[in-house]
Simulated scan of single mutants.
Amino acid sequence: MISQLTAYSLETITESAIYLLKRLIATPSFSREEAKTAQLIEQFFQEHGIPYKRTKNNIWTHNRYFDPAKPTILLNSHHDTVKPNPSWKLDPFKPLEREGKLYGLGSNDAGGCLVSLIAAFCHFYKKQDMAYNLILAATAEEEISGREGLELILPEMPPISFAIVGEPTQMHLAIAEKGLLVLDCVAHGKSGHAARNEGENAIYKALKDIEWITNYQFPKVSPTLGPIKMSVTVINAGSQHNVVPDACSFTIDVRATEQYTLEEIVETIQRHIQSEVKPRSIRLKPSSIPEDHPIVKAGIWLGRETYGSPTTSDQALLDCPSLKCGPGHSERSHTADEFIYLREIEQGVELYIRMLEQVL
């Protein structure tokens, strides 16, 4: 056994995590509406005698023997959820245990991850002589990539050496994650009467640009994340059948890798298409952590696999090496009758602790 926990103490800390998760499920916490779940997390830390800070709906705290001279590890996950889709048959806000599963909105994404990280943090909270400090951050607005979540409190924190971001990965190790770039584009033409062959049809111009977007491949391919992926996901033009449209707008969803900066991707697209291109933001960067990093090696030693993740999380806001890892399964996220297995939370708490023991 690597861990010095007894079976009883591990069981106790896991039970505490599951109880907190049930309370979070029972409390609606849509993005930008997380005040009540933030209050529940505050109450949890108060009950456990752990001082904390709150900035808007973000709760964060550090280990008791925090030493500014030591490097710091960030443990982060979010307590906001998407809205339940119409296909739910169960009550999304009623935590229900059935056949080893805990049902409820946010149970899998990312409540199970959050409470497992909180439990692991509590295990190390009073430990002395650690090589690192620990900061636990339960944050808001992750589901909408909002600016009043993790991004808001990072300037209040000391420099972060590396981070573990809790998202459902079956406790495997996402050592790289694609960034997200959303581009709003407009093809400009000239209006005219359709019957008289007048004007310049902006739709046709947009189609030529969309064809380039469909076929272009960025030369550099990530060994972990593969190629950059561009998809046109929205298009709008025209007002009536007999008027040649003078503008056609479309949106490009770009999933970026570490091989190019977001600015380089935008510049490449602007150079090759005629349409006007405006990025909504360049905040959500690709992220990664070296495969030989001690926390990754610790996970591999414990039988976890490494992979590159195509989805975006709060990792995109971090400027330090970061690992995405947590209990639950990504395919259950945002689905009707969302659930997490109780055994996944038990495994999550124990594996987080065992991985951190090897670096702390």
Score class of each variant (00 low, 15 high):
residue 16 S to R: 13
residue 110 A to N: 12
residue 328 G to K: 03
residue 182 V to L: 15
residue 167 E to T: 10
residue 216 Y to F: 08
residue 79 H to G: 02
residue 107 S to E: 06
residue 107 S to R: 05
residue 324 K to S: 04
residue 4 Q to W: 13
residue 191 S to F: 08
residue 26 A to T: 03
residue 47 E to S: 12
residue 202 A to S: 14
residue 242 N to Q: 11
residue 79 H to N: 01
residue 51 P to N: 09
residue 250 F to C: 02
residue 144 I to S: 01
residue 356 L to I: 08
residue 267 E to T: 10
residue 88 W to F: 00
residue 239 S to F: 15
residue 104 G to C: 10
residue 157 M to P: 04
residue 278 K to C: 06
residue 141 E to T: 01
residue 1 M to N: 12
residue 34 E to P: 14
residue 257 T to W: 06
residue 63 N to T: 11
residue 98 R to E: 15
residue 36 K to I: 02
residue 327 P to V: 05
residue 275 S to M: 01
residue 105 L to D: 02
residue 220 K to P: 07
residue 313 S to M: 00
residue 207 L to T: 09
residue 269 I to E: 05
residue 347 Q to N: 13
residue 191 S to W: 07
residue 272 H to P: 06
residue 277 V to H: 01
residue 145 S to A: 14
residue 185 C to N: 06
residue 303 G to F: 02
residue 198 E to G: 03
residue 244 V to K: 01
residue 9 S to M: 09
residue 45 F to I: 12
residue 133 N to S: 13
residue 164 I to K: 11
residue 313 S to H: 12
residue 73 I to W: 06
residue 48 H to L: 14
residue 13 I to E: 12
residue 43 Q to W: 03
residue 49 G to H: 13
residue 146 G to D: 00
residue 20 L to T: 05
residue 53 K to L: 06
residue 304 R to N: 04
residue 195 A to N: 03
residue 89 K to F: 09
residue 329 H to Q: 03
residue 178 K to E: 11
residue 156 E to P: 04
residue 48 H to R: 15
residue 6 T to N: 10
residue 320 C to W: 00
residue 153 I to Y: 08
residue 176 A to T: 02
residue 233 T to L: 11
residue 239 S to V: 08
residue 133 N to Q: 14
residue 314 D to G: 10
residue 64 R to W: 05
residue 281 S to W: 01
residue 262 L to S: 02
residue 185 C to Q: 02
residue 132 Y to D: 00
residue 101 K to T: 02
residue 325 C to I: 13
residue 213 I to R: 09
residue 132 Y to H: 06
residue 89 K to D: 14
residue 156 E to V: 05
residue 73 I to F: 01
residue 80 D to R: 01
residue 81 T to L: 05
residue 153 I to A: 00
residue 92 P to Y: 00
residue 32 R to V: 10
residue 355 M to D: 07
residue 340 I to T: 04
residue 252 I to K: 03
residue 317 L to K: 10
residue 78 H to Y: 11
residue 175 I to A: 12
residue 234 V to G: 10
residue 335 T to W: 14
residue 21 L to P: 06
residue 286 P to F: 09
residue 129 D to S: 08
residue 8 Y to S: 15
residue 147 R to D: 12
residue 302 L to P: 05
residue 219 P to S: 09
residue 102 L to M: 06
residue 273 I to G: 07
residue 57 N to A: 07
residue 258 E to R: 13
residue 80 D to A: 01
residue 261 T to M: 14
residue 319 D to N: 15
residue 214 T to R: 15
residue 188 H to Y: 09
residue 9 S to E: 14
residue 94 K to T: 15
residue 17 A to S: 10
residue 54 R to W: 01
residue 259 Q to G: 08
residue 343 R to V: 13
residue 125 Y to W: 15
residue 246 D to F: 09
residue 27 T to I: 10
residue 136 L to A: 03
residue 210 I to W: 03
residue 294 P to K: 13
residue 349 V to R: 01
residue 159 P to N: 05
